[in-house]
Amino acid sequence: MSVKIGVPSKGRLMEDAFKWFGLKGLKAVHGGLEREYSGTLDGILNVELVMLSAGEIPRELSVGRIHFGITGMDLVREKLGLWDRRVVETVKLEFGHADLVIAVPSFWVDVNTLDDLDAAAAAFRRRHGFRLRIATKYHRLVREFLRNHGVADYQLVDSQGATEGAVKNETAEAIADITTTGVTLRANHLKILEDGVVLKSQAMMYRALCAETSDEDKATLNELLMRFKQN
């Protein structure tokens, strides 16, 4: 056995994760061929890097197939019910910053807060005969947020990509999506509600609570924890 760390398998997240390991004195090394989805950490034995899609890392953590995993807070909180009973947030990684926000058309000059959105949704339903549609792929997070803020008469419609275009395409009246700079939102004639930030997310090193760990692994795990938390 060895201690397994789930690492995003491509793109900016992977590059930043590798850089972060470097800063901790743990150079990440791709196994064998450049394209192989596994690797090791130089400077510590008994550790295996498992390259996975960032979206699959929460599930792998929750069932304990990996001991650690790097992924976005948004993905863990969206995909895992009672997430804090299954994983621990170990270290904030200070990259992959993104906010999950509720956005509406900029020309809705009367809607700037959740309070306005709720009132607009009630009037919309009376006029159009169906609940105001919010396009998103973050169903759980958005529903909990809107419930906690007492917004009613809306419905969530699933959108797995190009969500910012949903209003223009008339498949939704508003959206809830991840944004970093807000440029894409503005380009699609949308604005963020003043109190519409659902979650301020970033990449996080998670530890699985139910992963099987041998004695040897325990020692490795503790050393890793120490190295991760060192500045």
């Binding site: 058309p105 020309f107 607009a120 006029r127 105001l132 008339e170 939704a172 009246e173």
Partner: peptide, 12 residues
Amino acid sequence: GQVIGLRTASEI
């Protein structure tokens, strides 16, 4: 700004 979506200017 640009008018988009089903909620109309008159509703606003």
